[in-house]
């Protein structure tokens, strides 16, 4: 068991640095809040295709998600902080993705896993949304079709870093109207 005493001992230098850097107590508390959030990410996998399968495998047989602090996979949006979009988002699926995102309580983060969720990937067709960022704000993109387990872990690390730094969200890309030539 680690109490606050141990924690302060472990992170003493870092905390000291923070204390020096901040002029108000609220700054430190804010940093502590972000630190807590980044270390207990509850994930919601929004899986639709091949990447969903790879995400299950990642947790089941390859890597320890516990180390990242996001081993708790919740299938209910109200209870999760991080949505992992794994797979192709079609036009038919898009309103559902949006409603699931809206149900999540803020603060919330989104990870686009695989090239389909990032940009539409191989499928530049009439039925596929060209990237999940057209529907919901995405924080981190993971390339690959499907991405390797190392890439997903790297993505999770990146998102933790972003949370710790308090990075701002990327806005939703508005779809441009088609050109009439």
């Amino acid at each position: 068991m680690t109490g606050p005493q141990d924690f302060i001992q472990q992170e003493e230098d870092f905390l000291l640095e923070k204390l020096v850097m901040t002029t108000k107590a609220s700054g430190l508390i804010d940093w502590l809040k972000r630190w807590g959030q980044s270390n207990s990410l509850w994930t919601l996998p929004f899986g639709s295709s091949c990447c969903a399968l790879e995400f299950i495998l990642l947790g089941a047989s390859q890597k320890k998600l516990d180390d990242m602090g996001c081993d708790i996979v919740r299938h209910s949006p109200e209870r999760s902080d991080l949505m992992i979009i794994a797979g192709t988002i079609t036009e038919k699926q898009a309103p559902i993705l949006k409603s699931v995102y809206d149900k999540m309580l803020s603060p919330k983060w989104v990870l686009a896993m695989g090239s389909c969720a990032s940009s539409g990937g191989l499928y530049r067709t009439y039925s596929v949304v060209q990237g999940a960022s057209r529907e919901v704000p995405v924080d981190v993109y993971i390339p690959g079709c499907p991405p390797t387990s190392d890439a997903v872990i790297e993505g999770l690390k990146l998102i933790k870093e972003r949370i710790l730094k308090g990075a701002k969200k990327t806005p939703v890309i508005k779809k441009k109207p088609p050109l009439n030539l």
Binding site: S48, T90, L122, S127
Partner: peptide, 11 residues
């Protein structure tokens, strides 16, 4: 069905 219709045949 059709939530993963990616237009394979048209492609």
């Amino acid at each position: 069905v059709g939530y993963l219709h990616r237009g394979f045949e048209k492609l």
